[in-house]
């Protein structure tokens, strides 16, 4: 999911809450002191899965022991800057542009691999909801009658999950809601992804209308029949996004009543790693993932709960030619 600069489960007020299935994948894999390389692991599913596959690749290709360290995007970038962590498996653009600007462009302590995986983010709903209520466009959410389909508290307005409280994408979704105007017809809800994803499961099981922020690749698309709502195409002239850290009046000064710009995610690594192990850095830059690959890996580890080590070994065996091509490209 794009751009999720999560610090902790702030929305949960008094009680902190463990992150969902992803946490299970990371638990027990955080012994980083003895590691040769440390991979920072943000909290969303595809990044966690890619971290595990990278760990296995570094072992088999370079004999390196990789440790996995759970953290926020900011923490991982800062750790790469400090030299205590080496790799971020999935940096989203445009979501993490500001972090890239700081660490890749200005401080030059982090390197972005050149080839990104195309991704998509927007507003989704279940296909059953779309068929039942003829809701096909984001603009439909500005229709009070259609918005009321998603009303669960009787105030006449629908509810829509727009992301976790600390995700950068959540700020953008607030801007988009204001720009489209459905902030007037819908209550914008923030909660950890684990709850939102399970809410989709329950909505499907209970035949309940549901609309929510979404990003792809994500295992939920493999589990359920989910569709994006139509939007006007991205237009840079209509995309003015000011973030809260930059201006307290960010919401008033922002406007983004169009689709997200084309999104990509990249592997980033520290300049320290590039200096000390240029062969590893070149390999990371040569890795070519794609949506289908990431979706397959995510489904296997998150939904099927395959053992990460066992799955990674199998995946590498099945993709030996592909990995060899990455090695070859890295050597040129």
């Amino acid at each position: 999911m794009g751009g999720h600069e999560i610090h902790e489960l702030a929305p949960m007020n008094k009680l902190t809450v463990p992150f969902f299935a992803l946490g299970l994948l990371v638990t027990g894999a955080t012994a980083t002191r003895a590691a040769d390389v440390v991979i920072g692991v943000p909290d969303w599913s595809s990044a966690t899965v890619t971290a595990h596959v990278l760990k296995a690749l570094l072992k088999t290709e370079f004999g390196l022991e990789a440790g996995l360290e759970f953290g926020t995007n900011e923490a991982i970038f800062a750790a790469m800057d400090a030299g205590t962590e080496d790799i971020h498996p999935e940096v989203w653009l445009p979501n993490h542009s500001s972090l890239n600007a700081e660490y890749v462009l200005r401080r030059k302590s982090v390197v972005m691999s050149p080839k990104g995986v195309p991704a998509r983010q927007g507003i989704c709903l279940t296909k059953a909801t779309q068929d039942a209520y003829d809701i096909v466009s984001v603009n439909d959410l500005t229709d009070p009658d259609k918005a009321a389909v998603f009303d669960t508290d009787g105030n006449g307005k629908g509810e829509i999950w727009i992301g976790a409280e600390d995700w950068s994408s959540t700020k953008v979704e607030k801007i988009r809601a204001k720009s489209y105007g459905y902030d007037q017809t819908m209550d914008l809800l923030e909660a950890p992804e684990a709850i939102a994803v399970t809410a989709i499961d329950a909505a499907i099981a209970g035949d309940k209308p549901l609309v929510f922020y979404c990003y792809e690749p994500h295992h939920t698309f493999e589990l359920h029949d989910i569709v994006f709502l139509d939007e006007p195409p991205y237009d840079p002239r209509k995309w003015t996004v000011v973030m809260p850290d930059d201006d307290p009046d960010w919401l008033e000064k922002s406007s983004a009543g169009v689709a997200w710009p084309p999104s990509f995610f990249h592997i980033n690594y520290s300049s320290k790693l590039a200096n000390e192990r240029p062969d590893v850095a070149a390999f990371l830059s040569a890795i070519r993932l794609d949506v289908d690959t990431v979706s397959e890996m995510t489904y296997a580890l998150i939904v099927e709960r395959r053992d990460p080590e066992e799955f990674s070994a199998q995946w590498m065996a099945d993709n030996a030619d592909r990995i060899a091509a990455w090695r070859k490209a890295a050597n040129h």
Partner: peptide, 23 residues
């Protein structure tokens, strides 16, 4: 017993207060 497609592992409890269901 109902169909419930999820990534959560068996034994997990899901409470949907709106629908008054616990899975």
């Amino acid at each position: 017993i109902v169909t419930f497609r999820t990534a959560e592992k068996p034994g997990t409890v899901v409470i949907d207060g709106d629908k008054h269901f616990l899975y």
